Amino acid sequence: MEELDMLLEELAANSMKNDSDKKLTLNLPAQSSGNTVTSGQSSEKDVYSQLPAPVSAEVMSPGTATRELDSIMNELLGLNLEVSEQMAEKDTKLEDKKETAGTNGEKDPAEGNASKNLSKNIDTIDNLLGTLSSDMEKMGVQTAAKGHCASCGKCIAGKIITALGKVWHPEHFVCVVCKEELGGKGFFEREGIPYCKVDYENMYSPRCAYCQGPILQNILTAMDRTWHPEHFFCSHCGERFGTEGFMESEGKPYCPKDFYMLFAPKCSGCGESVRENYLSAANGTWHPDCFVCSDCLKPFTDGCFLELDGRPLCSQHYHTRTGTLCATCNTPITGRCMSAMGRRFHPEHFVCAFCLRQLSQGVFKEQGGKPYCNSCHDKLFL
């Protein structure tokens, strides 16, 4: 210590002799004396005389680390998107070149270079993700993989969607038809495959037999087909069916009124539709109450009728129309017949109008529209 003090005094003296304005500052080690010797003007601040205040090393909180992770992941996704866009442009150019090369029979080397560049970019992103995961682990943030994406098969370290018993990257959980992301909305599942609402309904919902649109709520089943309830109506009048139900013809539904009007047989008597009990006779269909003699309108109590020109007639009026009534007894002639004076007679009823003897020989004389035998005619009129 004495030698050190002596050295300091010599240095101070030499300094004052050589240059009165020159200043010299010496910061002694803490092990020696713990005192600080300063030469020159005392008003000047000695930068070596004080140690800087210690700064505590803060550990990044998990929340801050997570936000940093999200920021970096967004940058990586942006990078991936940019790479994808560039590769899409390259693919378009490669397709054009490939068509040209195919015409010339040559192979374009740009195709192989594009594949190598794509593989290189994917490897770069994977390396960045690996480095990021390691750094986050050092900061106290758990970055262990949450599972493997059911779509791409890669580990999931950021946001995750759990659905259908699997885990997915949010951008990979999409409708299998339109590729729309399903993370922020509802979805439908069929055989383990996700669909958006529109595509699922278009592909698997039952179809209305009238409008062919998907049936989403109430469904009506009739004639082995499905219908919107508001679309199941009469094919003729358009009215919806009530308690009377409907009737079918050629695969179309009809209300009973229109069905009978359009398709039911018509009564040959009144012309109305025959719905229930009916009779088939005289080449027509009849209501039981309408099957009567066309002349006297009386029913056929004995069940027998005769037909003339498609009209049913009782025996009396049939023979009247055909002229086969006996002119004497006014009853139908069903057997042998005598024709005379424009009329017809039963043989036994063709007699002399005066003596009433049968004119069996067919010899007679007429007077006043009546037949007479020769003797009576001579007596009466000669």
Rank of each mutant, 00 (worst) to 15 (best):
L4I: 05
L4D: 05
D5M: 12
L8A: 10
A12R: 13
A13C: 07
M16Y: 07
D19I: 04
D21I: 01
L24A: 10
N27C: 13
L28Y: 08
S33E: 07
G34K: 12
Y48L: 15
P52S: 10
P52H: 10
S56Q: 07
E58R: 11
A65E: 03
E68S: 07
D70C: 05
N80Q: 15
L94N: 15
K97C: 05
E99F: 11
A101K: 06
G102M: 09
G105Y: 05
K107H: 06
K116E: 12
N117E: 13
L118E: 14
K120N: 12
M136Y: 05
G140E: 11
K146T: 04
K154D: 11
I156E: 10
A157Q: 08
G158M: 03
L164E: 03
L164W: 03
E171I: 08
E181W: 00
G183A: 15
D199R: 05
P206W: 02
Y210A: 08
Q212K: 13
L216H: 10
L220G: 05
W227Q: 10
P229E: 08
H231W: 07
F233A: 15
E239G: 13
E239K: 15
F241E: 04
E244V: 08
M247C: 07
K252V: 02
K257D: 12
Y260P: 05
Y260R: 08
E272S: 15
A282C: 15
N283W: 00
G284Y: 03
F291G: 03
F291D: 09
F291E: 06
V292S: 04
R311E: 14
Q316F: 09
Y318C: 04
R321T: 01
T322W: 02
L325R: 03
N330C: 01
T331Q: 15
I333N: 02
G335Q: 06
S339G: 12
H349R: 01
C355V: 06
V363F: 08
F364I: 01
F364E: 04
P371L: 02
